[in-house]
Design a protein around this nucleic acid. Structure first.
Lengths: 115, 115
DNA sequence: CAGTTAGCTAACCAATCGGTTAGATAGTGG
DNA sequence: CCACTATCTAACCGATTGGTTAGCTAACTG
């Protein structure tokens, strides 16, 4: 059973090395060697991480001479972001986020629906 | 090396079963048996998932007779949410391509500090 | 051309993950 | 006390993960 896109995205960014790579790519394209520089692991290890990121659609690769520059593709993050956001009314404790406020207004307005 | 909290949170919610459990807990507390009901896996498998969620601080457990009710603890999600949010500017527009273009123009224009 | 550089694949390894079954533990209720 | 219910632990298993080294391909460079 192949995993859904949200699972793919979340497990890709669950690794700190891969998160650091994505953060680095916010500054713009980078080659594999450039991406590998800050880490103490081998280039093939970075290649594997890049493959995971590419498999999740979080980066795309170009071609420039013998370089294969990586570019950030943030679109899949949106779905993961939206999933987590559903829980925003449960942190901060007191429903003081806009979402929670709106929900309370709605349920106060309609016929006494839920608790 | 123990993983940081964000990695812990993200890998906990990278699993669809665990995400479904958290969604269920938005409706309120539930026992292990109740949480296990929608799934085709054994109770011990669910126990393991709950242990992962508890280890990430995403649920807390109570005690009520022989029941060990689970309660949603959404606070750790906020950090993960905040991390992803940093990328929001890259997913709504085609801003990232413009950004990359601008950067390439800049580095072509400025001192060739590359590679 | 030969040599160097960038990147990839293959094979291997230990550790972790996600599930199982079997059995232990603890609380409830006749 | 006995039986039942709910939950957890232990031991095991196959698949996946995250890393390694060795060796390959492709493109630039002198």
């Amino acid at each position: 059973m192949q995993p859904d896109q949200v699972s793919l995205t979340l497990s890709a960014i669950a690794d700190p090395t891969r998160r650091a790579i994505l953060v680095r790519l916010m500054d713009g394209e980078a080659s594999v060697k450039e991406l590998a520089a800050p880490f103490e692991m081998s280039i093939p290890a970075i290649c594997k991480h890049l493959k995971v990121l590419e498999g999740a659609g979080l980066i795309s690769r170009g071609r420039n001479a013998q370089l294969r520059p990586c570019r950030l593709e943030a679109a899949p993050l949106r779905e993961a972001f939206d999933w987590i956001e559903e829980f925003s009314k449960f942190w901060d404790g007191s429903l003081n986020r806009l979402d929670g406020l709106l929900e309370r207004l709605q349920s106060a307005d309609g016929s006494g629906k839920k608790n």
